[in-house]
């Protein structure tokens, strides 16, 4: 496990005032003391922002990450407080917002092309439209997989979520998550082995 996911695996605990609160406790307290929700924001904003950079591009991530926490605060009544860690819930919101943003952008692009049609203007994969040096490498690594698998890979391999948490974030049965990850592993293994054989042949 790398350093980033190691940090993320730490049990959710928010330092709020003199007490240490889990995400669930902070959310529960925020009903009487809204400021308690700031603890959830402080702990997860970086991760959610990085996830959205990889998912929706650098410039969109600022707005989407802010919106994620705003929506989360407004809908905190929907949060199941039996889950101590709010990451799957936050990622679920972030993914929905990213998908909505993508659909909006596609509609705008189509409308724009109808007004001024030029071949090749519509980017088939808007996720790749806005990249920077940091996110570029990750996006390149994810280009080979479908959009759904990309979300799963980001949540599992990058954000460090467990099978159960990925299932909760993507609203999928856990069996589906397991089988998709199994397929992805097998596929990546084949590619790695193919690359290794290629290198041997070149020698």
């Amino acid at each position: 496990m790398n350093q980033a996911s190691g940090q993320l695996a730490v049990v959710s605990a928010v330092a709020a005032g003199s007490q240490t609160l889990t995400d669930a406790q902070a959310i529960e307290r925020s009903f009487t003391d809204p400021e308690a929700f700031v603890g959830v924001f402080e702990r997860h904003f970086t991760l959610v922002h990085r996830f959205l950079q990889a998912r929706a591009g650098g410039s969109a991530a600022d707005d989407l990450a802010a919106e994620t926490f705003e929506v989360a605060f407004r809908r905190r009544g929907d949060y199941d407080t039996s889950y101590t860690d709010a990451r799957p819930w936050l990622f679920g919101i972030a993914l929905n917002l990213a998908r909505d943003a993508k659909r909006r952008e596609e509609r705008q692009q189509r409308a724009f092309l109808r007004l001024a049609p030029r071949e090749g203007e519509l980017d088939a994969d808007l996720d790749l439209a806005e990249t920077n040096a940091g996110t570029g490498a990750l996006i390149q690594a994810l280009t080979a997989v479908s959009e759904e698998d990309r979300d799963l890979l980001l949540l599992f391999a990058c954000a460090g979520l467990s099978y159960e948490e990925c299932a909760a974030a993507l609203s999928l049965p856990i069996g589906t998550v397991r089988s998709r990850l199994h397929r992805l592993r097998a596929r990546l293994r084949r590619e790695l082995e193919g690359e290794a054989l290629e290198r041997e042949d070149q020698r």
Partner: peptide, 12 residues
């Protein structure tokens, strides 16, 4: 490989 690429994604 994906994790290595993820490590390069900058913080906000």
């Amino acid at each position: 490989e994906i994790r290595e690429a993820w490590a390069q994604v900058p913080e906000p």
